[in-house]
């Protein structure tokens, strides 16, 4: 059964007729056409589909699209300001925290959400904040470095 759905994704309003059993992930990828959000398992266990729902990181494969009706979604495509990368993205690029890149969108958004909550996380807080995002390539070492570097970049941005 289809129902009307209003979503704001990366600041753009979308109005669609969507089946009630569709997930937010399916709508973002298949209806809106933003494929930066990845489907790694479809079971809420890998974090690749992480988006920010009203600023909070969620596994979009575990959210029914209609649960997000009227809410604000940020996907990886919404993070950079034109060609200027968000400090978290810049940190991931510069520290070498990206290999295959399939976990990267979810990892970056979880990291952003963590830094929004806690601008200066300890190593343990970084580990706790990113436990829901699996990566099979990097061994996480440079992802931890990236979050630490992003924290510094955000500090600098605030100071300037």
């Amino acid at each position: 059964m289809k129902r009307e759905l209003h979503l704001t994704v990366n600041g753009v309003s979308y109005h669609r007729l969507i089946d009630t059993h569709r997930t937010l992930l399916e709508v973002i990828r298949d209806e809106i056409g933003l494929t930066g959000t990845k489907n790694g398992c479809g079971q809420g266990e890998c974090g690749a589909c992480t988006v920010l729902l009203d600023g909070e990181p969620v596994n979009s494969c575990m959210v029914l699209a209609h649960e997000a009706d009227g809410h604000d979604v940020v996907t990886i495509e919404g993070l950079a300001d034109g060609a200027v990368l968000h400090p978290v993205q810049r940190a991931f690029v510069e520290t070498g925290a990206i290999q295959c890149g399939f976990c990267t969108p979810g990892m970056v958004l979880s990291a952003k959400a963590l830094l929004d909550r806690n601008p200066d996380p300890t190593r343990q807080e970084i580990l706790d904040g990113l436990k829901g995002n699996l990566c099979r390539c990097t061994g996480y070492v440079k992802i931890i470095e990236a979050v630490q570097a992003a924290s510094c970049l955000l500090d600098e941005e605030e100071a300037s």
Binding site: R29, L34, T35, G36, T37, K38, N39, T75, I76, E77, L79, A80, L85, Q89, F92, V93, E94, G96, I98, G101, F102, T104, P105, V108
Partner: peptide, 22 residues
């Protein structure tokens, strides 16, 4: 040198298209 990967920006912005995105 540890230069950033040439595909880092498409990957970190979600622009990179994987086969599963086609």
């Amino acid at each position: 040198r540890g230069l950033p990967r040439i595909d880092a920006v498409p990957k970190v912005t979600g622009e990179a298209r994987y086969t599963v995105d086609l």
